[in-house]
């Protein structure tokens, strides 16, 4: 409940404050967001599977975000930032789809 509430509060805050992305963060934020989404979907799936653990979720969330940002950082340093960003988004997108499929099976029995 608090989790869903937190999500809503964050969205509302973002809408109200209309913050601009700092320049240093601009390349990392989209990838970090996708990584966090992956963690959230994974957590939801774990919840439905009955193996959800708060600590695991927090660690996976933070780690996902950090690793995604790190990959983009390394890619930028190597000169393949754009390509590596695309790769990360593709991999995370596949994971999100897989988790969404599992969630769908749980909720809609299909």
């Amino acid at each position: 409940m608090i989790a869903a509430l937190g999500l809503v509060v964050g969205i509302v805050l973002g809408l109200l404050l209309e913050p601009t992305v700092p320049v240093w963060m601009a390349p990392y934020l989209p990838i970090a967001v996708v990584a966090a989404l992956d963690a959230v979907f994974g957590g939801l799936r774990a919840l439905l599977d009955g193996i959800f653990d708060d600590k695991v979720f927090v660690v996976s969330f933070v780690a996902n975000v950090l690793v995604a940002a790190l990959i983009v950082l390394i890619g930028d340093q190597l000169g393949v930032g754009a390509q590596l960003s695309t790769a990360v988004v593709v991999v995370l997108g596949i994971r999100i789809f897989a988790n969404a499929a599992a969630i769908r099976r749980h909720l809609f029995k299909a």
Binding site: M1, I2, A3, A4, L5, G6, L7, V8, V9, G10, I11, L13, G14, L15, E18, P19, T20, V21, A26, L29, P30, A32, V33, A36, L37, V40, G43, D54, K55, F57, V58, F61, V62
Partner: peptide, 28 residues
């Protein structure tokens, strides 16, 4: 329906950050 707990607060905080980040990114 779970009762509020410290772990849940942390998860809520993370999700709030996620929502904030999503809106910010969409906006930019």
């Amino acid at each position: 329906r779970a009762r509020p707990s410290r772990a849940q607060s942390v998860v809520g905080l993370l999700l709030a950050a996620l929502g904030f980040a999503v809106v910010t990114q969409v906006h930019s």
